[in-house]
Structures are given as C-alpha cells and as structure tokens.
Amino acid sequence: MKMLLPLVIGVLFASGTYLILQKNMLKLVLGIGLISHAANLILISSGWIGPGQVPILGRDETKPFVDPIPQALVLTAIVIGFAAMAFMLVLALRVYKDLKTANIEEIRGQRG
C-alpha cells in the first residue's frame, strides 16, 4: 500500500496535468478535479499510520488513532473543491453559450 499510494498520486497528477494542458475548457475542469483528488490524497496520507483506528473516541483505547487533523482539512477541501468546480463549470457553460466555443484559445481576445 505504501508503495502503491505514491504511484496512485503520481498517476492522478499526470492525468490531471495532461487534461489541463488541453484547449477544451471542460477538459480543464476535469483535470482540476483529478488534481484536487491527488492533493487530498497527499494530505490524508500524511496522517496515515498504517492500520490505525478511526478517530472516534470511546471504543478501544489501545490501538493508535489515525491523525484527525488532515481528515478535517481534507473534508473542507472536498466541499470547497465542489463549489469551485461548480463555479468553473458554470463559467465554462456561460462562455460556451455566449461565444459558441469551448476552446480557450478562441475565447481569448473575444468579447461576448
């Protein structure tokens, strides 16, 4: 698992980067989605100590807990990521409807 997790994160970053390098705005949004998954995984893995206990108190006090702070951070990050994605999508939609293109290079320099 510890071997594979970095690989997973690397692949997520690579695919996300590939997507945001494309000209299509919607692909860009998808790419950012992938990269935010990768970022969340990095954060969460920093608090991961192998087989630990879910950070809910009052059950079994002997086993070590998983670090709760990255989890709290990531939880808000997921929700914020959702809001940002919704915003970007609607922005893309709006641009597409006004300019009839989703290609970022064609959008450049145009006024709707």
């Binding site: 970095p6 970053f13 980067t17 990768a38 670090d67």
Partner: peptide, 26 residues
Amino acid sequence: LSAVVGVVMTFYMLMVMDSHLTESIA
C-alpha cells in the same frame, strides 16, 4: 510534461511518506 509531473510527484511522495519532520499535534 504530464509524465514528468507524475514521476516527480511519485518520488516526492515516496520520500515524504517515510520522513517525519515534526511531531503531530493530533
């Protein structure tokens, strides 16, 4: 470029996962 990003991030994660710079405040 994406492959470079992927590879660098993989190695970075491999290095980071094994190091503990500071004590957790958990």
